[in-house]
Design a protein around this nucleic acid. Structure first.
Lengths: 192, 192
DNA sequence: ACATTTGTAGAGTGAGCAGTCAATCTATAT
DNA sequence: ATATAGATTGACTGCTCACTCTACAAATGT
């Protein structure tokens, strides 16, 4: 199901679906519209995705994967936990601002019944790196000794909140970077 | 539209809608099912709510109002900003845990196209108190001097994250209270 | 060259849904 | 008693939508 290399038409379909889902919601977007927007026939959509549900879940996994790759590539690694987290923090925020639709879709998806349809193995894979990193930082006494999930949740929601704020308040680049750094300092103060 | 005192049948309808929306999502829930679950006829639903959309928005406003009232009543007022925020923080968290469906619905609603349909006056009314409180605390130098919206967003998402964590990790009462307090301390450290 | 698989198209189908409507019931007013 | 307005019902409708099906085209293998 939508694994392996993704064809051009699949990319078009996912891009079209993203745009429309963000604008009209899952149910407000007929598959016919998605096909139209992607410039393919109705049947083609169902050739690649067995059901609409399959398309939605595939889109989610695709976005998450791309986001992960981006951070992996861009964020400079660092021995110092604080700097390491900071680099990743900044890259995620920047990505979320450059890909607002994608980020918004993830939120939408998370608080929908579709969230339950993501295979557990996929979820675990997504979390494993972050968890390991947090556990590492705890061992190094760089951050508070708390349940890993707890820390991760607080970090995620902090990032979510910041992204939301920056999206609403359209600021100049300089001002924005200032707030991002400030925001990380606040986060770090909280968990260190 | 669904203002003024709410009749029993309306209450039944909202309760039914909440339950089903949380379980199956907005689109996965036909109005016919909502009516059935509420024990009224199909037409009765449309007597009270012009459209399904109207029902959804009304439900959101109803929940938000109830949540606000609950906090207003329960949270002990305090001259000390920190204590004042803490009391409210705790009450919101406890409410969210006792009313998981309601809280989940709010999230679902926020990241949906329906969010745009809430009248701006309603939104402003909801935010005014919190904003005033934050501005007050800033003047008293109890918390950092930042944009009010920024602080509010960080607080909201922190609460959201904590609620989510506590919902997943089912802990004993004592443990839970410990984490709530700890979590508030962390939040306060961040913004003070 | 031919066979087989894979991709693409788009009209068609049947189920399900939001919302209507005419009829009946209830309540309050006069 | 009677009139008026609101509440309640549930069968009905017209439309939308997810998904199917058949036919044809392109690629791939032999």
């Amino acid at each position: 199901m939508s694994s392996q290399s993704i064809s051009d038409k699949q990319k078009d379909l996912l891009a079209a679906a993203l745009k429309l889902f963000v604008q009209y919601g899952f149910h407000g977007t007929p598959t016919s519209q998605i096909a139209k927007q992607a410039g393919v026939a109705n049947g083609t959509l169902f050739h690649y995705y067995k059901t609409k549900e399959d398309l939605i879940v595939s889109l989610y996994i695709d976005i998450k994967t791309r986001m992960g790759q981006h951070v992996e590539e861009k964020a400079a690694k660092d021995k110092n936990p604080r700097k390491d987290f900071r680099n990743q923090f900044i890259e995620i925020i920047l990505w979320s601002l450059e890909n607002k639709d994608d980020y918004y879709f993830i939120q939408q998806f998370h608080s929908s019944p579709f969230a339950a349809l993501v295979p557990t193995e996929v979820i675990k894979k997504q979390l494993s790196k972050s968890c390991a990193q947090i556990e590492d930082a705890i061992k190094q006494k760089a951050i508070k000794n708390r349940d890993t999930e707890f820390i991760l949740t607080l970090m995620s929601s902090h990032i979510f909140g910041l992204s939301q704020y920056l999206t609403k308040a359209k600021l100049a680049d300089k001002e924005q970077k200032k707030i991002i750094k400030d925001s990380f300092d606040m986060l770090w103060k909280m968990i260190s």
